[in-house]
Amino acid sequence: MTRLALLLMTIALPVQAGEIWVTNEKDDTVSVIDVDTLEVVKTYPTGERPRGVTFSRDFSRLYICASDSDTVQVMDPNTGEILHDLPSGEDPEQFVLAPDDRHLFIANEDDAVTTVVDTQTRQVVAQINVGIEPEGMAVSPDGKIAITTSETTNMAHWIDTATNTLFANTLVDSRPRHAEFTADGTKLWVSSEIGGTITVFNVADQAEAGKVRFEITGVSADLVQPVGFKFNPEGTKAFVALGPSNHVAVVDMASLAVEKYILVGRRVWHMAFSPDNSKLFTTNGVSGDVTVIDVASEEAIKSIKVGRFPWGAAMRPTKSN
């Protein structure tokens, strides 16, 4: 009886409509996926080699790293119009918007610097020398710490955002690609693509708190390559894209043990949740599609064809019809 009531309630709840915006690195476009119909509803042109992508706090602006155009583009997501470009430093790959909704921290992959840009004044505030091939970017929930990971130097660089200077550099396994703070700000996770691990740090003292390791039956260990990942809103599970192993791992955040591997498309990169967090959308670079994962059952339910080499993903809630 209770169960039935719960089920009815779930059905009765209005599903929040939304879109997943995916950058197509080899097509110079963004594809817009409707999370209800699971169809591509729009495709907009961008600058060259779009990769990192994120929305402003109120979802009125889409920021796009146009790597080969050496700029961050600002798009009106209602029209697809490029409003203006932001100075970004050379070859911007990934970035993170600070909690102040104003400052972008940008990894300049070819330049070994992190660029801080004020999106209001459209000025570069600072450039910080980091290791070779900076890529992963994260900012702590309180905005006090920004992280850049460098792929060839194999470090997480800890930036004091008050001074825009480095205050720590911590080694991780080979080729770090992505970094995220936990929602409570106490832990930092960094994925290492070639090392095949995720290193978890205590933010308070930058000490290593643990490592996540992956093993998929029938897949050569050196092809299990963690790249992008996302935490569920409850902070209990992490979903980790494992690159050319074509799987997403579900990791228990408390024990750091892998609970499940979900088969997705080829060379899975990054991901975004639907507005109600019931679905997870992964970009699959080689197969040129997006896999939709049902979060409750942890099963892949659909593949959606997008452009060539989809890379980044960002969510925007929209009004229900």
Binding site: T152, N154, S174, R175, G195, L223
Partner: peptide, 10 residues
């Protein structure tokens, strides 16, 4: 030991 050599495997 594992080296990243830009060839997709350690």
């Amino acid at each position: 030991f594992q080296q990243d050599g830009f060839k997709g495997r350690a």
